[in-house]
Amino acid sequence: MNVFRLAGDVSHLVAIIILLLKIWRSKSCAGISGKSQVLFALVFTTRYLDLFTVFISVYNTVMKVVFLALSYATVYLIYMRFRNSYNSENDTFRVEFLLVPVIGLSFLENYAFTPLEILWTFSIFLEAVAIMPQLFMITKTGEAESITTHYLFFLGLYRALYIANWVWRYHTESFYDLIAIVSGVVQTIFFCDFFYLYFTRVLRGRGKMTLP
Protein backbone atom coordinates (compact mmCIF):
# COMPACT_ATOMS: atom_id res chain seq x y z
CA MET A 1 0.00 0.00 0.00
CA ASN A 2 1.28 3.42 -0.93
CA VAL A 3 -0.21 6.89 -0.91
CA PHE A 4 -1.21 6.78 -4.61
CA ARG A 5 -2.99 3.48 -4.19
CA LEU A 6 -4.84 4.67 -1.06
CA ALA A 7 -5.79 7.96 -2.69
CA GLY A 8 -6.95 6.02 -5.76
CA ASP A 9 -9.19 3.77 -3.71
CA VAL A 10 -10.60 6.76 -1.83
CA SER A 11 -11.30 8.55 -5.13
CA HIS A 12 -13.08 5.46 -6.41
CA LEU A 13 -15.18 5.30 -3.26
CA VAL A 14 -15.95 9.03 -3.43
CA ALA A 15 -17.04 8.68 -7.07
CA ILE A 16 -19.45 5.86 -6.29
CA ILE A 17 -20.87 7.64 -3.23
CA ILE A 18 -21.34 10.91 -5.18
CA LEU A 19 -23.39 9.07 -7.80
CA LEU A 20 -25.44 7.15 -5.25
CA LEU A 21 -26.19 10.27 -3.18
CA LYS A 22 -27.07 12.27 -6.30
CA ILE A 23 -29.63 9.68 -7.35
CA TRP A 24 -30.94 9.24 -3.80
CA ARG A 25 -31.33 12.94 -3.01
CA SER A 26 -32.78 14.02 -6.36
CA LYS A 27 -34.86 10.81 -6.55
CA SER A 28 -33.81 10.73 -10.18
CA CYS A 29 -31.22 8.97 -12.29
CA ALA A 30 -31.70 11.26 -15.29
CA GLY A 31 -28.53 11.52 -17.32
CA ILE A 32 -27.01 8.41 -15.76
CA SER A 33 -26.26 5.39 -17.92
CA GLY A 34 -27.79 2.35 -16.26
CA LYS A 35 -25.78 0.21 -18.65
CA SER A 36 -22.46 1.54 -17.35
CA GLN A 37 -23.60 0.90 -13.78
CA VAL A 38 -24.63 -2.69 -14.59
CA LEU A 39 -21.23 -3.21 -16.21
CA PHE A 40 -19.47 -1.89 -13.10
CA ALA A 41 -21.54 -4.22 -10.90
CA LEU A 42 -20.47 -7.06 -13.20
CA VAL A 43 -16.84 -5.90 -12.95
CA PHE A 44 -16.90 -6.03 -9.15
CA THR A 45 -18.76 -9.33 -9.09
CA THR A 46 -16.34 -11.15 -11.38
CA ARG A 47 -13.23 -9.60 -9.84
CA TYR A 48 -14.05 -10.12 -6.18
CA LEU A 49 -14.88 -13.82 -6.34
CA ASP A 50 -11.59 -14.29 -4.51
CA LEU A 51 -13.42 -13.06 -1.41
CA PHE A 52 -14.41 -16.71 -1.08
CA THR A 53 -10.96 -18.20 -1.76
CA VAL A 54 -8.23 -16.02 -0.21
CA PHE A 55 -7.97 -13.56 2.64
CA ILE A 56 -5.64 -10.66 1.88
CA SER A 57 -6.37 -8.06 4.56
CA VAL A 58 -9.25 -6.54 6.49
CA TYR A 59 -8.93 -3.40 4.35
CA ASN A 60 -9.09 -5.47 1.17
CA THR A 61 -12.14 -7.47 2.26
CA VAL A 62 -14.05 -4.46 3.59
CA MET A 63 -13.43 -2.37 0.46
CA LYS A 64 -14.48 -5.22 -1.82
CA VAL A 65 -17.72 -5.77 0.08
CA VAL A 66 -18.42 -2.02 0.13
CA PHE A 67 -17.81 -1.64 -3.62
CA LEU A 68 -20.06 -4.62 -4.34
CA ALA A 69 -22.85 -3.36 -2.09
CA LEU A 70 -22.72 0.21 -3.41
CA SER A 71 -22.65 -0.86 -7.06
CA TYR A 72 -25.67 -3.11 -6.60
CA ALA A 73 -27.47 -0.36 -4.67
CA THR A 74 -26.84 2.02 -7.59
CA VAL A 75 -28.22 -0.49 -10.11
CA TYR A 76 -31.24 -1.05 -7.84
CA LEU A 77 -31.98 2.67 -7.63
CA ILE A 78 -31.72 3.12 -11.40
CA TYR A 79 -33.71 0.11 -12.57
CA MET A 80 -36.15 -0.39 -9.71
CA ARG A 81 -36.72 2.48 -7.34
CA PHE A 82 -36.33 5.46 -9.66
CA ARG A 83 -36.80 3.69 -12.99
CA ASN A 84 -39.35 6.30 -14.11
CA SER A 85 -36.55 8.87 -14.33
CA TYR A 86 -34.18 6.59 -16.23
CA ASN A 87 -33.45 7.96 -19.74
CA SER A 88 -33.37 4.59 -21.47
CA GLU A 89 -33.98 6.30 -24.82
CA ASN A 90 -30.57 7.97 -24.54
CA ASP A 91 -28.78 4.98 -23.01
CA THR A 92 -28.48 3.20 -26.32
CA PHE A 93 -24.87 2.05 -26.36
CA ARG A 94 -24.68 -1.52 -27.64
CA VAL A 95 -23.13 -3.31 -24.69
CA GLU A 96 -22.60 -6.51 -26.66
CA PHE A 97 -19.97 -4.66 -28.70
CA LEU A 98 -17.98 -4.37 -25.47
CA LEU A 99 -18.80 -7.74 -23.93
CA VAL A 100 -17.96 -9.97 -26.89
CA PRO A 101 -14.41 -8.67 -27.45
CA VAL A 102 -13.78 -8.48 -23.71
CA ILE A 103 -14.87 -12.09 -23.18
CA GLY A 104 -12.76 -13.19 -26.13
CA LEU A 105 -9.68 -11.29 -24.94
CA SER A 106 -9.94 -12.61 -21.39
CA PHE A 107 -9.79 -16.18 -22.73
CA LEU A 108 -6.82 -15.35 -24.94
CA GLU A 109 -4.74 -13.20 -22.62
CA ASN A 110 -4.65 -14.24 -18.97
CA TYR A 111 -2.20 -15.33 -16.28
CA ALA A 112 -3.70 -18.82 -15.92
CA PHE A 113 -6.42 -20.67 -17.79
CA THR A 114 -8.59 -21.20 -14.71
CA PRO A 115 -12.15 -19.95 -14.16
CA LEU A 116 -11.20 -17.46 -11.44
CA GLU A 117 -8.25 -16.05 -13.41
CA ILE A 118 -10.30 -15.72 -16.60
CA LEU A 119 -13.09 -13.97 -14.68
CA TRP A 120 -10.53 -11.70 -13.00
CA THR A 121 -9.03 -10.83 -16.40
CA PHE A 122 -12.53 -10.30 -17.80
CA SER A 123 -13.24 -7.83 -14.99
CA ILE A 124 -10.02 -5.91 -15.65
CA PHE A 125 -10.72 -5.61 -19.38
CA LEU A 126 -14.39 -4.81 -18.84
CA GLU A 127 -13.61 -2.06 -16.33
CA ALA A 128 -11.44 -0.38 -18.95
CA VAL A 129 -14.46 0.13 -21.23
CA ALA A 130 -17.41 0.09 -18.81
CA ILE A 131 -17.71 3.88 -18.74
CA MET A 132 -18.26 4.06 -22.50
CA PRO A 133 -22.09 3.87 -22.36
CA GLN A 134 -22.02 6.84 -19.95
CA LEU A 135 -19.66 8.91 -22.11
CA PHE A 136 -21.71 7.93 -25.17
CA MET A 137 -24.87 9.13 -23.44
CA ILE A 138 -23.27 12.50 -22.65
CA THR A 139 -22.11 12.84 -26.24
CA LYS A 140 -25.59 11.97 -27.48
CA THR A 141 -27.47 14.41 -25.27
CA GLY A 142 -24.69 17.00 -25.49
CA GLU A 143 -24.74 17.80 -21.79
CA ALA A 144 -24.22 16.47 -18.28
CA GLU A 145 -25.24 17.80 -14.90
CA SER A 146 -22.29 19.09 -12.92
CA ILE A 147 -22.74 16.45 -10.23
CA THR A 148 -22.48 13.75 -12.89
CA THR A 149 -19.26 15.32 -14.10
CA HIS A 150 -17.89 15.34 -10.53
CA TYR A 151 -18.63 11.60 -10.42
CA LEU A 152 -16.74 11.09 -13.68
CA PHE A 153 -13.87 13.26 -12.46
CA PHE A 154 -13.31 11.15 -9.34
CA LEU A 155 -13.65 7.96 -11.37
CA GLY A 156 -10.99 9.20 -13.79
CA LEU A 157 -8.83 10.44 -10.92
CA TYR A 158 -8.94 6.95 -9.40
CA ARG A 159 -7.57 5.48 -12.62
CA ALA A 160 -4.84 8.11 -12.93
CA LEU A 161 -3.77 7.53 -9.31
CA TYR A 162 -3.58 3.79 -9.93
CA ILE A 163 -1.11 4.46 -12.74
CA ALA A 164 0.99 6.50 -10.30
CA ASN A 165 0.69 3.56 -7.89
CA TRP A 166 2.04 1.18 -10.53
CA VAL A 167 4.94 3.47 -11.37
CA TRP A 168 5.71 3.64 -7.64
CA ARG A 169 5.47 -0.12 -7.18
CA TYR A 170 7.63 -0.76 -10.22
CA HIS A 171 10.39 1.39 -8.79
CA THR A 172 10.13 0.32 -5.15
CA GLU A 173 9.10 -3.36 -5.43
CA SER A 174 9.99 -4.18 -9.05
CA PHE A 175 6.34 -5.18 -9.25
CA TYR A 176 4.21 -4.90 -12.35
CA ASP A 177 1.02 -6.48 -13.56
CA LEU A 178 0.92 -6.07 -17.31
CA ILE A 179 -2.78 -6.90 -17.82
CA ALA A 180 -3.83 -4.37 -15.19
CA ILE A 181 -1.41 -1.70 -16.42
CA VAL A 182 -2.36 -1.89 -20.10
CA SER A 183 -6.08 -1.92 -19.27
CA GLY A 184 -5.65 0.86 -16.74
CA VAL A 185 -3.84 3.08 -19.22
CA VAL A 186 -6.51 2.43 -21.87
CA GLN A 187 -9.22 3.25 -19.32
CA THR A 188 -7.49 6.47 -18.29
CA ILE A 189 -7.15 7.58 -21.92
CA PHE A 190 -10.95 7.43 -22.27
CA PHE A 191 -11.15 10.06 -19.53
CA CYS A 192 -8.65 12.51 -21.05
CA ASP A 193 -11.19 14.18 -23.32
CA PHE A 194 -13.61 14.38 -20.43
CA PHE A 195 -10.96 15.84 -18.10
CA TYR A 196 -10.33 18.59 -20.63
CA LEU A 197 -14.02 19.50 -20.76
CA TYR A 198 -14.31 19.23 -16.98
CA PHE A 199 -11.53 21.72 -16.32
CA THR A 200 -12.40 24.12 -19.11
CA ARG A 201 -16.19 24.13 -18.62
CA VAL A 202 -17.47 22.69 -15.36
CA LEU A 203 -14.92 24.29 -13.05
CA ARG A 204 -15.61 27.69 -14.60
CA GLY A 205 -18.78 27.69 -12.59
CA ARG A 206 -21.41 26.65 -15.09
CA GLY A 207 -24.23 24.47 -13.91
CA LYS A 208 -23.90 21.95 -16.66
CA MET A 209 -21.27 20.66 -18.96
CA THR A 210 -22.41 21.27 -22.50
CA LEU A 211 -20.57 20.00 -25.50
CA PRO A 212 -19.78 22.35 -28.37
Partner: peptide, 10 residues
Protein backbone atom coordinates in the same frame (compact mmCIF):
# COMPACT_ATOMS: atom_id res chain seq x y z
CA UNK B 1 -0.66 -15.80 -11.04
CA UNK B 2 0.25 -15.99 -7.37
CA UNK B 3 -2.06 -14.42 -4.87
CA UNK B 4 0.68 -12.05 -3.77
CA UNK B 5 1.08 -10.85 -7.35
CA UNK B 6 -1.30 -7.96 -7.61
CA UNK B 7 -4.53 -9.36 -6.22
CA UNK B 8 -4.28 -7.07 -3.24
CA UNK B 9 -5.27 -4.23 -5.57
CA UNK B 10 -8.93 -3.43 -5.92
Amino acid sequence: MDDDFGKDEL
